[in-house]
Design a protein around this nucleic acid. Structure first.
Length: 112
DNA sequence: AACTTGACGGTCA
DNA sequence: ATGACCGCCAAGT
């Protein structure tokens, strides 16, 4: 396997537990490409082409803003999905984002 | 083949 | 605090 940057992104996204959200930058940083946060979003764009389900709705930008809601086929689809998991979304922004924030580098623990 | 855009983020002014 | 620019890599045009 090539273990492309994209593939790793999908893998991490799938590890995001329900009721939690993370940011593109957090994933990118976990993969060692903090400056490539845009690539994470781009990977999400291809996520629809990936097997299995990639909960991209749990990925928001560092503001907790549902920047990708537009890509879910609707404006409220992403919000509905998040609220369905217990996440409160208001004005396209995750309430208590800091509490709901799930950092792979922190939760997955990188210890060697 | 080259240029522009893109679901971001951090730094600089 | 707000605004603008740069970086990163891939895909679309």
């Amino acid at each position: 396997m090539e273990t492309s940057f994209f593939d790793q992104v999908y893998e991490v996204v799938r590890l995001i537990p329900p009721g939690r959200v993370t940011s593109y930058g957090a994933i990118a940083r976990y993969l060692g490409a903090a400056q490539s946060s845009r690539m994470v979003g781009w990977a999400m764009n291809n996520s629809h082409s990936q097997p299995g389900n990639v909960p991209a709705h749990r990925v928001v930008n560092r503001n907790g803003l549902l920047t990708g809601k537009h890509f879910f086929g609707g404006n409220l689809v992403m919000q509905e999905l998040l609220e369905s998991e217990g996440i409160v979304v208001e004005n396209d922004q995750v309430v208590n984002f800091r509490e709901k924030f799930w950092d792979p580098s922190q939760e997955l623990t990188i210890r060697d």
